[in-house]
Simulated scan of single mutants.
Amino acid sequence: MHLFVQEKGAFIAKHQGRLRVMKAKDRLNEVPLLHLQQVLINGGGVSISSDAIRACAEEGIPIHFVSSNGTPHSSLYSAGLTGTVLTRRAQLRAYDGEAGLALARAFTLGKLQNQANLLRYVAKYRKEADPDLHAALTVVASEVVDSLQAVRDLQGVSVEALRDRLMGIEGRYAARYWGALAPLVPAELAWPGRETQGAADAFNQVLNYGYGVLYGQVEHAIILAGLDPYAGLLHADRPGKPSLVLDLIEEFRQAVVDRTLLGQVTRGWSIGRDEDGRLDADTRERIVTRVLERLESSEAYEGKRQPLRHILQCQARHIATFVRGEREAYQPFVMGW
């Protein structure tokens, strides 16, 4: 269960083992802490009491804050979750050695394979209805074989030595991936192709908001695993940049966000926007609901089907055990199709 609050003037308070959302004298929502997994606060004008924050910290419930366009800007956790010194020391040491290089390579391989598998997934449902589109999607998916081998063939002694080449391969295939998906986006959305920050069209805004929701889930998994979300490998270090979150999210974008939201628009979902061209409240709530529902659905993983949320947490823990030397190799999560 999650609590999503976005109405300006809303106030979140603790009340007898529950979180209650009020606006003036109106009760907007109330959920038991016992079953609550997270709180997502969207935009400005929402307040939360110190008692509610403390209750969430004691119950291990994260509170995520995102802007109106889905950009995550802060999260609240129990302070005790960041006290994993041995893991963080191992994580920092890994950057300059073979473990860091192996992780950067694995994140890239995972993203490439998942992009190919999503193309295969959408292609298989169009084999009879649209043979030309099926063939085009299949061709682009097959190109990943060359990309995967190119990543494996890269030689280097550190992440620094290979980062630009890894990102170059990833970038070239990303362009092919989004180009292949373009025919599936309804023409009325006038999709210009993939754009990130500052996107003015509806579908890119939807994708960006979905990634913002997923970002909070990845960050939480990383912190629960005892890792530092800012000490990444594939993505370069910059002040305030959560590089490890950006690394690990690459394995889950396609399975959690791309598949979910592309499916929504191809089934006729009408994206609502306000007079300023931003996603309206109902649309934002629908994105949050669908993305979090997808995290509860299952994928094949380690010999059985498991919820994506559990898989995400396991992958974060596998990073931790790998950098500590307790795991021989780190394998990226690869979605089925």
Rank of each mutant, 00 (worst) to 15 (best):
P131M: 03
A300M: 15
G70M: 02
S67A: 13
G44E: 14
Q6C: 11
N114Q: 11
L34E: 15
V245G: 04
A281R: 14
A116V: 07
L184P: 00
A320N: 01
S297N: 13
P307K: 07
A104F: 00
V265Q: 00
R278T: 13
M335L: 05
E30C: 06
E98S: 12
A150Y: 02
I319R: 01
G198I: 10
V122F: 12
G171V: 07
T283N: 04
L184C: 04
I319E: 02
H318Q: 13
A190N: 11
T196F: 15
A255K: 04
E98P: 11
R286P: 00
D26M: 14
P239W: 00
K304M: 11
E285P: 02
R253C: 03
E30V: 12
H134M: 05
L262Y: 01
F4P: 02
Q331F: 08
Q38K: 14
D26N: 13
R273E: 09
S47D: 08
V140G: 03
G80T: 10
Q306P: 01
T289C: 11
R324E: 07
D26R: 14
V334H: 00
L154R: 08
D228L: 10
I169Y: 06
L279P: 06
Q197C: 12
V46L: 07
P242V: 06
V334L: 01
V66C: 08
L19G: 03
E326I: 00
V157I: 09
N208M: 08
N42K: 14
Y77S: 00
L308F: 08
E326P: 00
E275F: 09
P62L: 01
R18E: 13
I48H: 00
V151M: 02
Q91L: 07
A10N: 07
Y215T: 13
Q6K: 12
L36K: 06
G9H: 01
S75I: 03
A187N: 06
Y209F: 15
D280Q: 05
V256D: 03
H318M: 10
R88V: 06
A316L: 03
L261Q: 03
Q6I: 07
I319M: 06
G179V: 04
I311N: 01
A135H: 11
A79K: 11
Y125G: 15
V288S: 09
G9Y: 02
R286K: 12
V159Y: 05
T82E: 09
Q306A: 15
Y177E: 03
G45C: 05
L33R: 07
D282R: 14
Y121V: 05
L166P: 00
K14V: 14
A116K: 06
Y177R: 01
G210K: 08
G110Y: 03
S297H: 12
W269Y: 13
G43D: 08
G216D: 09
Y301D: 11
A135K: 12
A106T: 00
G268W: 02
V157Q: 12
R126T: 04
I169K: 05
R238P: 00
L137F: 06
G43Y: 10
D26I: 14
A182S: 15
N204P: 10
G303A: 05
Q155N: 10
D228K: 07
H2L: 15
F65I: 04
R284S: 05
R284V: 10
L119H: 05
V151Q: 01
E7I: 07
N42V: 15
G45P: 02
Q37G: 11
N42A: 13
G277K: 09
Q205R: 13
K8T: 13
